[in-house]
Computed example of a mutant assay.
Amino acid sequence: MTNIQSMTIAIKSLYEQDLCLWLQANINLLKEGKFAEIDLENLLEELESMVKSEKNALKSNLRVLLMHLLKYKYQQEKRTNSWLYTILEHRKRIRDAFQISPSLYRFFEEIFNESYQDARELAAGETGLSIKIFPPESPFTVEEVLNPDFLPDDSPENIQ
């Protein structure tokens, strides 16, 4: 067995024992240009997992934001500062995600309608209101959802 083969086996076994140490070892190998010794299979798996995780976090933040915007619009009498905080917090999380990875904006647009449908179900479940109260298509545009100053209009003619 060559030295490179034994190093590769050691790195792969480290993956199962200590993820942070494994990552640091692979980072060091990359910096040193020792590409043959890198645990490529697990590294690719971890990188793909990171992308999925970022997308799942964005989707989750969007669902929560949309749900609270729906609650804010359709339950004016129950509005709380907690709802406003949640709207603010999840907008910030989404904005932060876009700052770190601007390419996530395209994914955001792709999942917007699906996330709105999820938010309708969540809002109905949390409020006890019929899902029919919430329109089948989002009453909010992408721009409104991301606008830090936007809150849904609560005038009676806009409430169904």
Rank of each mutant, 00 (worst) to 15 (best):
A123K: 03
P152M: 03
Y116A: 00
S6H: 07
M50N: 11
F140H: 00
T80N: 08
R63W: 07
G33A: 11
K92L: 04
R106D: 14
D154Q: 00
K132H: 10
N147A: 01
W83E: 03
V142R: 15
D153R: 02
N26C: 08
L88G: 08
P148C: 03
Q117Y: 10
I87R: 04
T127P: 06
A119T: 09
N56L: 10
P139R: 06
C20L: 12
Q24G: 11
P148S: 06
I4F: 02
E46R: 09
V145L: 03
I27M: 13
L29S: 04
L23Q: 15
T80D: 05
E32G: 10
H90G: 13
I87M: 01
V142L: 15
L146Q: 07
I159D: 08
S49N: 11
N28S: 13
A57V: 08
A119M: 07
I4C: 00
T141P: 03
I133S: 07
D118W: 11
V51G: 13
Y15P: 04
E144D: 03
E137F: 08
L40H: 12
E77V: 06
V142C: 11
K132R: 12
A124F: 02
F35S: 10
N3L: 04
P156A: 06
M7T: 03
L47Y: 12
K55V: 12
Y72R: 04
G33N: 11
S155H: 04
L146I: 02
E48Q: 12
S130Q: 04
K59L: 10
L58D: 06
F134G: 09
I111A: 10
I11S: 13
I131M: 05
H90A: 07
A124K: 10
L29T: 08
F112T: 14
W22N: 10
H68A: 08
E46L: 11
T141A: 01
L151T: 05
N3Y: 00
I159T: 02
R79S: 01
S115A: 05
D118G: 11
E41H: 11
I94M: 00
M67E: 13
L21N: 14
Q117D: 12
Q76R: 09
F150D: 09
I131R: 13
D154Y: 00
A36C: 02
V51T: 14
Q24I: 13
Y105F: 15
F140M: 02
Q76D: 08
E121M: 10
T8H: 04
E121A: 15
L65Y: 03
N56S: 11
N81W: 03
L129A: 09
A123F: 03
S115N: 05
S6D: 11
P156E: 05
R91H: 02
A25N: 05
Q99I: 08
R79M: 00
E144T: 02
A123I: 01
M67D: 02
T141E: 03
Q5T: 07
K71T: 08
P139C: 07
F134R: 01
L66T: 09
C20W: 14
K55G: 13
I100T: 12
S103C: 14
K73V: 01
L151A: 01
R91F: 06
S53R: 15
E37H: 07
N56I: 04
T80C: 10
Y105T: 12
E114Y: 01
K52R: 14
A123T: 05
D96A: 09
D39L: 12
F134D: 05
Y105I: 13
